[in-house]
Design a protein around this nucleic acid. Structure first.
Length: 465
RNA sequence: GGCGACGUGGCCAAGUGGGAAGGCAAGGGUCUGCAAAACCCUGAUCACGGGUUCAAAUCCCGUCGUCGCCUCCA
């Protein structure tokens, strides 16, 4: 079975076929940079990182574009409030966000365009939409004419008539239809502004993505992604703009991640219930968050609280447990047992792939990895040598890596390793002499310094915790 | 009000017509000087009520509950 991908547009899984063989054009909506990013942003970035890594594992070359919205009402308001320059404010948060992505082991996008640096493309696109009759100028603003396009609403499953009925939209008599949305906003005094055929102003939110996607990935792309809160109006409007412009289908697959839930509610700035990425990383490993994301379907809401964070951290340790070295003095396991271990690695890879092929079912894939963990640990408990464990451990590490997990973390500096070795060796003599108090003291003190010592029948192993 | 999801053991969660994965927690056991780790064993009438089917957690209808979007939002 080949890769199946669920698309919001068709509301079903479809076979994944790219425009160009073995190449994927991926556009993911990035953040509006006016404040610290929270773990919900991280979830979305992680979801698409996992998708990207798996596509690469499957042999696709992925061109990944993630934009920064660096000019917008919220940025301007915030800058005014703080009395700083809006561009500097945006720059600060862009740098911070890029660092978060790095900390979270998220592969850098191929391109990170910014709205303010793509103004020519944006202006060209708006002009073309006006020329084609899909947009109109009104008092320095430019609006998209939603009624001009018959299939407006196809992504979110809405009809114009229904929307108007329960509309919570402010009335603006400059608009022909209250649902028309701004492509260009006339600048007010003191606001950042660019010259345009309609006077000084700045782009609306939706147009930048259409322009940047077109500029960096071409008229048609394979995957457009983002949080499911962007389906309407943002992505709906992107489709309208791009398809009105090119007359072609914009994105083949629309992939949307579910919202992270904090105490039963979506985490969002307006609700004020957010946990920043900074706060999270201050007290938890990055992979714990990744594991939480992996452990559930990316389209479903993700439960986020202290309990599940703790569960994820423990689960991470379990994955890592399989990479521990053989017991000291291991005698080796039988050829039959070794064969069973090899067979399990084959089963694991097959199961991993078939799960991930099914719309990136990472929770299913993880299940197979845990099975391999169990079998590796069984083999070690039965006396397998490092040599015998190696190929299974390599597969576990490789497949975990496909999910973006780093099981072998570089912990403390290696400078102290030789001293720890010495201490553990001396302690071994102490144990032989049955000086248990001293032996336990060494172990406790090492533990306090972050060294976990584990005793076995014929010796001890240790590692940085 | 409109549109759309979801409800699986104490917790998280996969599975979506025919054997209920996996992780965490809990209890019991093996190993061990002790500890830790690891290993072994133990648990689910799949929200509720109808219906379709030889067969339903999985399809259909209804009820209840939770959540998202419809305004900025990953």
């Amino acid at each position: 079975m080949s890769l199946q991908v669920y698309s919001t547009l068709s509301r079903k899984k479809e076979p994944f076929e790219t425009i160009e063989p073995k190449r994927v054009r991926l556009y993911v909506c990035g953040p509006t940079v006016y404040d610290k990013a929270h773990v919900g942003h991280a979830m979305s970035a992680l979801v698409f990182d996992i998708i990207r890594r798996y596509l690469q594992y499957r042999g696709y070359e992925v061109k990944h574009v993630m934009n920064y919205t660096d000019v917008d009402d919220k940025i301007i308001n915030r800058a005014n409030k703080l009395g700083c320059d809006p561009f500097e404010l945006a720059e600060t948060y862009i740098q911070q966000y890029a660092q978060h992505l790095k900390d979270l082991n998220i592969l850098p996008a191929t391109v990170n365009p910014r709205a303010t640096r793509e103004m020519d493309e944006i202006l060209k696109l708006i002009s073309d939409l006006i020329a084609k009759g899909y947009a109109y100028e009104a008092g320095g603003d430019v609006y998209y004419r939603v009624e001009k396009k018959a299939d407006y609403g196809k992504l979110s499953g809405r009809k114009l008539d229904d929307m108007r009925a329960g509309a919570r939209i402010e009335v603006d008599e400059r608009k022909e239809n209250p649902l028309d949305f701004a492509l260009w906003k006339a600048a007010k005094e003191g606001e950042p502004a660019w010259d345009s055929p309609w006077g000084k102003g700045r782009p609306g939110w939706h147009i930048e993505c259409s322009a940047m996607s077109g500029a960096h990935l071409g008229e048609q792309i394979d995957i457009h992604g983002g949080g499911n809160d962007l389906i309407f109006p943002h992505h709906e409007n992107e489709i309208a703009q791009s398809e009105a412009h090119t007359g072609k289908q914009f994105a083949r697959y629309w992939i949307h991640n579910g919202m992270l839930q904090l105490s039963g509610e979506k985490m969002s700035k307006s609700l004020g219930n957010l946990i920043t990425i900074e706060d999270f990383l201050a007290s938890h490993p990055a992979d714990a968050l990744r594991l939480m994301v992996l452990n559930s379907g990316y389209r479903n809401p993700l439960t986020f609280n202290d309990e599940v964070i703790g569960q994820a951290e423990k689960a991470l340790e379990r994955l890592q447990s399989a990479l521990k070295p053989a017991a000291p003095g291991a005698a080796g396991i039988s050829p039959e047992a070794l064969k069973a271990l090899d067979e399990q690695t084959t089963t694991t890879r097959a199961g991993f792939e078939s799960s991930m092929d099914d719309d990136f079912n990472s929770a299913g894939a993880l299940g197979y990895l845990f099975e391999l963990v169990r079998v590796i640990n069984q083999a070690r408990a039965d006396g397998a040598t490092d040599e015998q464990l190696k190929s299974a451990q390599d597969v576990l590490e490789e497949l975990s890596g496909v999910l973006g997990l780093r099981l072998r973390l570089e912990k403390e500096s290696h400078a102290a390793d030789a001293f720890v070795d010495l201490l553990v060796e001396v302690r071994q003599d102490v144990r032989q002499a049955k000086l248990w108090e001293l032996s336990d003291k060494i172990r406790d003190r090492l533990a306090a310094m972050g060294v976990q010592v584990e005793d076995a029948k014929s010796g001890s192993t240790w590692f940085w915790k």
